[in-house]
Amino acid sequence: MPLRETEAIVLRTYRLGEADKIVSLFTRQVGRLRAAASGAQRPKSRYGGMLEPLTYIRLWLFERENRDLLRINSTELLESFFAMQGDYRVQLAAQYIAEAAERFLPEREVNERAFRLLLAVLRALKASREIDRPLLYYNYWLLRLAGFLPQLEQCCACGRALAGEEIFYGDETQGLVCSRCRTSRSRKISGEAFSLMEKMRRSPLDAWMASEPLAPAVREARRLFETWMEACAERKLVTLELLAAES
């Protein structure tokens, strides 16, 4: 029964029996996995607040052959995002990040870039208490790292270059289309939102957060990516619905 050490971000927890918890984790060295933490619900649990959703921890895990569920041996806190609960919209955004990570990152597949993305976006949310720019950045990179990002320079139907064209998107196309390939349900995307996406793709998160793009264009681009996220996930993301109600 080997003991593994890894860094991880807690995505969510489930109650298990009277005193235990199942913890869904995105680990740096193993990828996404689930592990049991015995006694984690007890008031004097040795885990304390370290297994709360979106906590960045180092943990030691026992792994048994032919068993999906690992067992947590001990944990050490690296960074807590508990203070983000002070703002309901920020909490919704943080939980959306966790839900999307669970949906898009396959189990037991190491993805160092996705791990760094998750951590960086959580830090940006914590520091800025703003949700639009961090979420837009997260959506774009998560789709890209998970291999779902559609072509953004060309029409996904006819392959025509989109620069200087009227651009549309819709639930049914999962990509951008030109005015000739649009359907009756396609929605137009503004030039500001399109050029904003161009800028974001070339910027590291710090530079992106330091820039001051037009808020309506950021929201428009965010909506576009969220439409693709749900289309790729092939189901509604529950946190997205609550986020939309708060916006």
Partner: peptide, 8 residues
């Protein structure tokens, strides 16, 4: 409130 469980 638990957004991940759809509780708003």
């Amino acid at each position: 409130l638990s957004p991940l469980q759809g509780i708003g």
